[in-house]
Nucleic acid binder design. Structure first.
Lengths: 263, 263
DNA sequence: AAGTTCAGTAAACGTACGTTCACTGAATAT
DNA sequence: ATATTCAGTGAACGTACGTTTACTGAACTT
């Protein structure tokens, strides 16, 4: 399961070209675009939701248009991986199909799939860092820090589900190129985190190296928890609570260990 | 990079059939098999080594032969993933090609690729558990436990490189089916490990639940370290030493935390 | 107003894929 | 000695793929 639909289907083409003339654009006045109106980037399974939520109106400029299509391509790839597939299993045609664009168009934006992958890593890296930034801005409530942080983290994951699926998935699997890029982002994340921890004065007795090591441990644990959270079916609050609880305890143990750490 | 060779190649067929008549079987007397002698399961890159190391002689029985081919298929899949690709990117034809067998033969052994994947999970699970078993047999040397264990672990990883690449890679990425199976194996591993830790009397003050939680943390860290180890190029002993050192410290921190753990 | 640029198009190419089918012939069962 | 079984074969099928090519026409430049 979960690999490509195993051959024998309706032959791909009908989708884009037909969907524009038949069941297509009643959800938006077709006149909104002059010609290169991209077909709705709808999934093959859930047709309506996600990716391009009536952001229509008038994005006129040519450069903006290009950016928009590029974003559609990235979103399409993420969406496909959201159905539970590795980046390496995506095909170019598939991505362009979901993005509502012809395959050849892809090359106007990326040299190939790897380049798109790297763009996704960067995008995800930004999402990751924003998590830290928000935590920094909020400051840490001195009471129940861990439990609160984990709750925030859980919410953040679900709000950026696709990015986290991507990072968690490609962090260890798949292509060496992408994995390396993800690990680099992760290192930046660890660096920032240990900087913040020092700033906030948690673990004052520890050396920089020890702090960094502990943060690495935290991030590993965090990524693992992310995979766990993302694998929970949406109707299993009990399971999610257990994962939350386990994650909190693990973090507690780590910080306990860090407090008594001596070289 | 690292996805499939990007089209435009010599058309696959020539490979198997030709290699038998031209440059093929001088490494073994062709008469060893009557007819269904499988072509050498050589990689497209490194032709000679690995998979079927002169285990020839006479495995006569039909059942044995079937098992042997099955093993070749599993080994072929692992080998391909060893080149740094996710399981989801493998194709059936590719696997049979490397295994030295015609595509249709695949179905004599597996219903499809997923079934082969699950077989690989099981195989890898056995490898994982053998690690614990050996640790149990040896007993833990009371001096420098952590450092010694990590060295053993590092050696074990390299001795079973492909299995660990598979587990580490599919643990978070790829198909939900395989991921679930891997996580199940991992849970078994954690169970056994916490049982052993209790047996050996480490962490005597902790509840079963706490022990289990700590073991989960250890295994997550371990899997992460495995990916790190496997990504080190073979000529970078310094980098490997750093990873080892980091891993030791992380484990030390975890056990430190576990020692002072209170509910 | 005329000319240039270039994101997106349509069609074609050669290759690879999964799956099916009737077959062959040695290992087994009778 | 004869019949049955069945792992492995070879060929064919329809579908999907990545990439290239010449094109169109609106957005920009002059």
């Amino acid at each position: 399961m979960s690999r490509r639909p195993a051959a024998n289907m309706t032959y791909e083409c009908s989708l884009r070209t037909e969907s524009r003339s038949t069941g297509g654009p009643e959800w938006l006045p077709a006149s909104a675009y002059t010609r290169p109106m991209p077909a709705p980037p709808k999934s093959l399974i859930v047709p309506a939701v996600a990716a391009k939520p009536a952001d229509a109106e008038a994005p006129i400029s040519r450069g903006d248009r290009k950016l928009r299509t590029r974003a559609h391509l990235l979103a399409a790839a993420l969406q496909l991986m959201g159905e539970g597939r590795g980046f390496g299993t995506l095909s170019l045609r598939e991505i362009t199909r979901v993005a509502g664009v012809v395959p050849a168009s892809f090359y106007r934006h990326f040299r190939g799939l790897d380049e798109l992958g790297l763009a996704l890593v960067e995008e995800s890296g930004v999402t990751l860092r924003r998590l830290l930034r928000e935590a920094r801005r909020t400051g840490m409530p001195p009471k129940d820090i861990l439990r609160r942080s984990v709750q925030i983290f859980r919410d953040y994951i679900h709000a950026h589900r696709l990015h986290f699926m991507f990072v968690a998935g490609e962090r260890s699997g798949g292509s060496a190129l992408i994995r390396a890029a993800v690990r680099a982002e992760e290192r930046h994340f660890i660096d920032e985190m240990s900087h913040d921890l020092r700033q906030f004065g948690l673990m004052p007795g520890s050396s920089t190296a020890a702090l960094h090591m502990a943060c690495g441990l935290v991030v590993t644990t965090m990524m693992n928890a992310a995979t766990d959270f993302l694998d929970v079916p949406p109707d299993q609050p009990q399971l999610e609570r257990e994962i939350t609880e386990n994650f909190v305890r693990q973090l507690r143990l780590i910080f306990l260990g860090a407090r008594v750490w001596r070289e």
